[in-house]
C-alpha cells in the first residue's frame, strides 16, 4: 500500500461555541477515491475547507507527503498540490472556457510590457484537456454559461489536473446534477484517479459513492465513525452510519424499508 499524500490527524474545528469538527482523522493515497459521506450539517464542507487552507484547524495536525504543514491560505494548499472544486464558485459563466481554464495562470508571449495571452496555445491545451476528460467542445471561445452543470464541473476538474494537483477535493460535485451528467462526472473521477491523483469525493448520496469509491469515511455531527474499504461494507450499512445508525433503523421500520 502506498503512503498517503495527505493525512489529517484528529482535526478539530470550533466556531465559537459550535464544535463543527470533533477530532476527525482522514487520509488520501495516490490513485484512490476516498469518499467523505455525511448528512447535511455533518461537517463535510468544514472539514475540506480545513484541508484546502480556508480554515485553520483549532486542534490537530496535517501532514503532506510526510511533512507536517500549516496552511495560511488556499494559495498555500494549492502550492502543495491540493486543489478544490467548489460546487458553486468554480466558473465564471460569461467568460469563455479558455479564459476560465487559464484564469489566474494565463500563458503569455511577447516581451516586457507588451506581453499578451498566448491564445493559440491556451485554446489548444484547453481543447485537448477537455477532450481527454471526454468532452469535445464546439470551440474553446464558447462561454462557460453554455455548458451543462456536469461539463462545468469537468472544466474545473480538468483545470486542476492540468495544473498539477496531487489531491483533488470535490465538494458535492453531483448533488445538483441529473442522472446522465452525474454519470459523466463519475466517469471523469475514475479517469483522474487512474492518472494517480488522490481524490476526496464529498457526497451525501451513497449510490454515487459506491459507484467510484475505494474507501469510505462517514462523518456524523463532526465525528467520524471510522473508514471502510470497498467490498467490506454495503450501501445499506453506509446509509445507516450516515443517519446515525439507531435513528434510521427505527425510521426504516416505520417506513417499511423504503429509505
Amino acid at each position: 500500500m502506498t503512503a498517503p499524500i495527505i493525512e489529517m490527524r484528529n482535526i478539530e474545528k470550533h466556531f465559537g461555541p459550535v464544535i463543527a469538527l470533533g477530532g476527525v482523522s482522514f487520509d488520501v493515497r495516490p490513485g484512490e477515491c476516498h469518499c467523505l459521506l455525511g448528512d447535511n450539517g455533518a461537517g463535510k464542507s468544514t472539514f475540506i475547507k480545513t484541508m484546502s487552507g480556508v480554515h485553520k484547524p483549532s486542534r490537530g495536525t496535517m501532514v503532506v507527503e510526510g511533512q507536517e504543514v500549516v496552511f495560511d491560505s488556499p494559495r498555500d494548499a494549492m502550492a502543495a498540490g491540493i486543489a478544490t472544486v467548489y460546487q458553486d464558485l468554480a466558473m465564471i459563466p460569461l467568460m469563455s472556457v479558455t479564459r476560465n481554464f487559464w484564469m489566474g495562470r494565463e500563458p503569455e508571449k511577447g516581451f516586457g510590457p507588451f506581453k499578451t495571452i498566448d491564445f493559440a496555445k491556451a485554446n489548444e491545451v484547453t481543447m485537448r484537456e477537455m477532450a481527454r476528460m471526454g468532452i469535445n467542445l464546439r470551440e474553446p471561445e464558447q462561454a462557460v454559461g453554455t455548458l451543462s452543470g456536469g461539463e462545468r464541473q469537468t472544466v474545473a476538474i480538468a483545470r486542476a489536473v492540468y495544473f498539477g494537483a496531487k489531491v483533488l477535493i470535490l465538494d458535492e460535485p453531483t448533488s445538483a446534477l441529473g442522472v446522465r451528467q452525474t454519470a459523466n462526472v463519475l466517469a471523469t473521477i475514475d479517469q483522474v484517479r487512474k492518472a494517480g491523483i488522490g481524490i476526496v469525493f464529498i457526497t451525501h448520496n451513497v449510490r454515487h459513492a459506491m459507484a467510484v469509491g475505494d474507501r469510505f469515511t462517514v462523518l456524523n455531527r463532526g465525528k467520524t465513525l471510522g473508514t471502510a474499504v470497498r467490498g467490506e461494507i454495503t450501501a445499506e450499512a453506509l446509509q445507516d452510519l450516515m443517519a446515525g445508525g439507531q435513528e434510521l433503523a427505527v425510521l426504516e421500520s416505520s417506513l417499511g424499508g423504503t429509505v
Binding site: 467548489y86 464558485l89 466558473m91 465564471i92 459563466p93 479564459r99 484564469m103 503569455e108 506581453k115 495571452i117
Partner: peptide, 20 residues
C-alpha cells in the same frame, strides 16, 4: 493577462480570488 483579470474580477470576484 490583466484583461482576463478585469473580466474575472467583475464576473465573479470570489471565483477569481480563489484561483489567485
Amino acid at each position: 493577462r490583466f484583461g482576463n483579470w478585469i473580466f474575472a474580477s467583475g464576473g465573479d470576484a470570489q471565483a477569481a480570488r480563489y484561483v489567485g
